[in-house]
Design a protein around this nucleic acid. Structure first.
Lengths: 197, 197
DNA sequence: ATTTGATTTAAACAAATGATTAAATCAAAT
DNA sequence: ATTTGATTTAATCATTTGTTTAAATCAAAT
């Protein structure tokens, strides 16, 4: 009767991922997570000690997904700038399709307590001092390369942040959104290219 | 002793604007607002009946700022597409500088209860069916004009959404951020122009 | 000075929330 | 079958939260 595929601990984690990502930390009750997991409320404290500790685990995973996910491609010295932009666009959009609520959740929680996550994000190491940034700098010497990074990431992520806004319009259903994002996989690298010329 | 410039009601509203925008609805306690206003907790219910009602007032104001703010320029038939892009970029960035926390707060709350705000946002009327969108359609017939709208708004808004992320890097202080955004006022219209060619 | 209604105050309430507790149950070893 | 430690359960706790209540205070009219 204990031949379950998921341990209790893992069930709680998975439920926490779902509920925290959907509702954010403050609006998530421990009872919500217990219910989502189909388990007794007290188990959350038994396995994770506190709501806060559980949240931290979920948050660190999500930061990895959003930030560290980029590092290998950004720092790959064998790819041209154009190839990198194409690769990043494709990979990031695919990742976001699997985790559409992630950006808004993460940005919202970082805003609430930024100092808590500074050591994990490591923006300097993985992003700002990456090979990719060097490549941009060489291409456009007169403009801060961060400008292009922000625009690229903005164009990739923003539609996911505003999806609920677009869903308030009857002209936008799930299929429209998906279609729109698929088109962007092609458009964004083209746009970045013309911006860099 | 009642010759105050701000009425009690207005004081509460202003405090609510500050606290809700900073912390979001769920994490905001009525006691936080009372403290910010320097008033007695029970006054919130006396003047506004509930936390929810107070929030609604603040939220509607903020939606106007983010969405309706755009409508006049988008629908101004006397401006060329290029001029519109320049105007929107400048005006929106100025507005965001005064309300840097607004986008993240609004997007986050819309995500929590989108059906509540559909009637206020009026995306179809003011944005999707605007003169601006027609102008884009005429310029680039083969691409959904929403693509350009998303990219423009994404490039304008995204830096404000990710400001706390950038602040985790020691390379970014307030002055850097301001400088970066000022540059974008010029860069974004240029970029949009090349994207539309 | 008194009355009346409006506003403010501080305390209290009822429910919700994260956490704790102790007992029950399970699982493995002897 | 018993013991031991691990896990689970349901109840309880202590605190917090949005709201309500009743009294005090204010302000204007008489």
């Amino acid at each position: 009767m204990k031949a379950k595929s998921a341990s209790t601990e893992e069930k709680i984690k998975e439920a926490a991922r779902v509920v925290f990502t959907k509702k954010g930390y403050a609006a998530t009750k421990t009872r919500d997570i217990a219910e989502e997991a189909g388990l007794n409320l007290a188990l959350l404290n038994y396995y994770f000690r506190s709501k806060e500790k559980l949240f931290e685990i979920v948050m660190i995973e999500n930061l990895q997904k959003l930030f560290a996910f980029l590092a290998p491609t950004l720092n790959d010295t064998s790819l041209s700038l154009d190839k990198k932009i194409v690769t990043i666009s494709a990979n990031y959009i695919d990742m976001l399709f699997q985790n559409p609520d992630l950006p808004l959740f993460v940005l919202s929680e970082i805003r609430t307590r930024p100092e808590r996550f500074a050591g994990i994000i490591k923006l300097d190491t993985y992003v700002l001092q990456s090979h990719f940034m060097q490549q941009i700098r060489e291409k456009k010497k007169k403009i801060n390369p961060v400008q292009f990074l922000i625009s690229l990431m903005g164009m990739l992520i923003f539609p996911f942040l505003t999806r609920p806004v677009f869903q308030t319009s009857s002209a936008f259903d799930e299929a429209s959104f998906t279609q729109l994002i698929k088109e962007r996989k092609k458009l964004i690298p083209q746009w970045l290219k013309s911006m860099l010329e």
